[in-house]
């Protein structure tokens, strides 16, 4: 009666026939485990993402401001960040384990590293994209260097800055799934669990789809925030 070929039952309480047959998606199982598995996983996923993007933002912003003033430093940052970006994620996670163990710290170091290149490149492009005429006018009207940066250059770079944050955030949400190998948190945990449980399909699909939905939702949120931050881009052209 239990013998369903190829599927070992996940050991989560009572089982429905859908679960026993390892059907493509068992709603009842999913809703049963929303509050103990998926809900918390989403929360952890978000926390891991926000920490990585926030730290990455600070580093990338600092680097891009330096690069904006000193182009040669920018070339250096670009090389370093590109190298880091090129390391396959699972490899970077594992390479950090000897130093920081199977911890959230390990996950965050790697996740942060992956945000740097995208944000840095976008920030620099945004700052360099501010028109020379606008800068000339700002200087000619007596804005100090700091005032020009705060009132003119950074606001005008917002579209590029937000674009960088969006790519970084969506990338990190995807990488947090992999981070489950070194830090037992996030939506990667149910996926790994399901793979070990003879590819329990409901859990695989639920976690993967939730990760995608989470990324889309956060991305939409960022698009919305850009819309709020850049009223001058909303108006129609003359």
């Amino acid at each position: 009666m239990l013998a369903v070929p190829g599927a070992v039952l996940p050991n989560f309480g009572q089982t429905s026939s859908c679960v026993r047959n390892n059907g493509l998606f068992c709603w009842s199982w999913f809703s049963q485990h929303w509050s103990d598995t998926f809900g918390p996983a989403i929360g952890q996923h978000l926390v891991l993402t926000v920490i990585a993007v926030a730290i990455g933002f600070v580093i990338a912003m600092a680097a891009s401001l330096v690069a904006y003033r000193l182009p040669w430093a920018g070339a250096g940052f670009n090389v370093v960040f590109t190298l880091v970006f090129t390391i396959p994620s699972i490899a970077l996670f594992e390479l950090l384990v000897p130093a920081t163990g199977l911890t959230r710290t390990t996950a965050e170091i790697a996740l942060t590293s992956y945000t740097l290149l995208v944000m840095f490149a976008n920030f620099v492009t945004g700052l360099r994209g501010v028109s020379a005429d606008v800068l000339e006018a700002a200087e000619g009207m007596g804005l100090t260097r700091g005032q020009r940066l705060r009132r003119v250059e950074l606001p005008l770079a917002i579209p590029a800055i937000v674009a960088g944050i969006r790519v970084a955030t969506v990338t990190v949400i995807g990488l947090v799934v992999v981070a489950a190998y070194v830090d037992n948190e996030g939506l990667g945990v149910p996926i790994l669990q399901a793979i070990q449980n003879s590819s329990f399909k409901t859990e695989l699909i639920a976690a993967a789809v939730l990760a995608v939905l989470l990324a889309w939702a956060v991305d939409a949120l960022l698009v919305g925030s850009q819309w709020l931050l850049t009223p001058w881009l909303r108006s129609r052209r003359a």
Binding site: L24, V167, V170, T171, I173, G174, L175, V176, V177, V178, L187, G188, I191, A194, I195, S199, K201, L204, I205, A207, A208, V209, A211, V212, A215, W216, D219
Partner: peptide
């Protein structure tokens, strides 16, 4: 881009 590689692999595994 929003589709995580491991998530995508998970879906392929299920399908």
């Amino acid at each position: 881009r929003a589709v995580p590689s491991l998530g995508l692999l998970a879906i392929m595994l299920a399908l």
